[in-house]
Amino acid sequence: MSQSNTQDTLVGLFVAAGIAGLFFLALQVSNLSSFTEQAGFTVTARFENSGGLKVKSLVSAAGVKVGQVSKITFDPKTFDSVVEMRIFSQYDNIPSDVSASIYTAGLLGEQYIGLGKGSSDEYLKQNSEIEFTNSAIILEKAISQFLFKSAEEKAEEKK
């Protein structure tokens, strides 16, 4: 009987270790812990072009993560990109006239929304809309503009 007891113990240890491994993956490796505990409210912003922004992209203010993008849709009337983002509820005192810009983390990195400064006495709340927005910088556009400009300048110099 003692042999089957050790066997039981080992099976118990095995199951516990396996479940611990799975929990470790869920809590320590993935983002589960970071977004399940965060309650928040949704605000929208319209961008002329939201570029490479994706659902779950970061929303930051002064480099601090304050929320994440929850939905991106296209408005066929205004040809705008409507971005819904979820701001964590502890940041319920962001002025309502902040600006939202789309930045790129590093040269080839992910795109994220950066919130600028504001001075209003009213704060962002559920369903409010951020009015001042700067679209994503599209790299190809920027490069072609730059090349076009420098070509023009050279042409003028020759004249």
Binding site: F14, V15, A17, G18, I19, A20, G21, L22, F24, L25, Q28, V29
Partner: peptide, 15 residues
């Protein structure tokens, strides 16, 4: 039943 437990163990130890 063992397979997912073993995978959990494998990945966690790998990380």
């Amino acid at each position: 039943l063992s397979m997912p437990l073993l995978v959990g163990l494998f990945s966690a130890i790998g990380v």
